[in-house]
Design a protein around this nucleic acid. Structure first.
Lengths: 280, 280
DNA sequence: GTGATATTGTAACGATATGAACAGCGCGGA
DNA sequence: TCCGCGCTGTTCATATCGTTACAATATCAC
């Protein structure tokens, strides 16, 4: 569909012919510049209504830009848009073979993390974590590093955080109850293991926060809030970098939400460390 | 036109019903997740062709998501997209504002990692690791996640990798000898602890590879090879992301250097996992 | 194996979009 | 004033869109 690389931005095209535009065409040009989505999503009629002109004027505008008709112009705009949208992420599993250098892969994955916490998402993810009586962290092998980061970070800002890695027993979860929250890392390879444990927790009334690499994950059903991040391959293994980044952002948000409680807690822990000669 | 704020992301909607999707509907879901522009720009026919199904299945998919028809679904997706385009988030290349402070910090830190391995630096760092009889990994609290990543990765591609975290005893190092290599993570806060241990190892003839955040680190003197990376603050704590990224790049390089030995070792480990029901 | 149910594809419908031909309007020059 | 020309809006034809109703197929329980 949208495989062709646009030679020039659509706005450039408009600018190129701006001097030889008729009055109504100029109004059209101003409208599409002010609101590019009109061109990408709207029909000829939509544009005509918006500008206050007739449909053929829109078509003629398209031809004046060098296209065969409005359809071609719209395709050009859309391929331009798709390009911008697919740049930061989403192209790793498909188009990108393993020829993608690790640098690009990691960079894109990091972008996907920031995409995932768009808006107030990070707040919604963290909210049950700060409100919970106890916090459980479940992870498989791929997300070990992230789970570790989340555990050590959260432990600093609030009490009762338990990390269950890899080969935990379901019995470990027996204490969990409706006032608790579980953060579950759920990635391709080790999905079933954590899925089973998460189901146990969900049935016990625990609030589930899922960090997953696919919205089709079975965990998403169980989860109260969730977010999706990419896990790119680096060398022969899957990268933990996005998971760690996400974990740290969650901790940062939790620290912000807990504010005074967190800072005093951190101070106490630091003092304890100093006292026990952690610094040698 | 597109002024309405989307109540929930389209991915959320797909996820919400993902468990009650029929096989073809699931294929549709996967397609639109892999290529969101299909939904935003494509027609029912486009999607049907892409997925390899009939047009009505697409419409039924839309209704199952809670919309009156495909048109409504597409409008929702488009308003979602417009939002992302208008909001300052998506702009990584263009108006690179300091939208999220943590974002910039992490991005810069990642860049520093790639700067640090410019040229053949990563090869020089890894060379003593692959050649060593035994590999020791030393880290403090800040670099725990990175050390963990390095340990689990290296363990996959070669034997005799030992991780010593935080409160290890110097006695643990008694086995180390001139044929060994130690990778030492050495960061601001927990410098003294690892510095002491590294000195012990260096005096035992162990080759030292240092990952540090400062060229002034005392470890640089002891180290045979070293590299410097940034450790940015995220919230109240230091980020592990750069350390993890560096660790993974080291593992990837080691895997490449060891090649056949590594792959056969990975295969054996995988087989062992399967046998012990890691996948449940 | 058989009936019931769920799932999927086929056919037909109205609605709408685009693009082209045609007609009215305004403006400037002779 | 009249004519010519470019600009704009109206009408129409055709293709395609989204949708619904219906039939065929696959799946499962008993």
């Amino acid at each position: 569909m949208n495989s062709a690389e646009p030679k020039s931005s659509t706005l450039d095209l408009v600018a190129a012919v701006s001097s030889m535009l008729t009055p109504t065409e100029r109004r059209i040009a101003e409208a599409v510049i002010a609101e590019p989505t009109l061109l990408a999503f709207g029909t000829v009629s939509d544009l005509a209504d918006q500008v206050g002109t007739s449909r053929p004027s829109i078509v003629r505008f398209a031809t004046k830009l060098g296209f065969d008709g409005y359809t071609e112009l719209q395709q050009h705009v859309r391929s331009d848009l798709s390009h911008r949208l697919s740049r930061p992420s989403e192209r790793i599993r498909h188009g990108g073979k393993e020829s993608v250098p690790a640098k690009r892969a990691i960079g894109d994955a990091i972008s996907s993390v920031f995409d995932a916490i768009e808006g107030d998402r990070v707040s919604r993810l963290v909210e049950p974590v700060v409100a919970a009586k106890k916090v459980w962290i479940l992870s498989g092998e791929t997300s070990q590093a992230g789970a570790h980061a989340l555990h050590s970070g959260l432990s600093m800002v609030r009490p009762d955080v338990t990390l269950l890695e890899e080969h935990f027993f379901v019995g470990d979860l027996s204490d969990a109850g409706p006032e608790d929250t579980a953060v579950v890392f759920d990635f391709q390879r080790y999905r079933r293991q954590v899925a089973v444990a998460a189901r146990v927790l969900a049935e016990a009334g625990v609030t589930i926060v899922a960090i997953t690499d696919s919205p089709l994950s079975p965990l998403v059903d169980l989860a109260d809030t969730w977010c999706q991040i990419e896990v790119p391959p680096v060398g022969p293994f899957d990268s933990s970098v996005p998971v760690v980044a996400m974990s740290e952002l969650l901790v940062a948000q939790a620290a912000k939400d807990l504010h005074d409680a967190a800072t005093s807690r951190i101070d106490r822990i630091e003092a304890l460390w100093e006292a026990t000669e952690t610094f040698l």
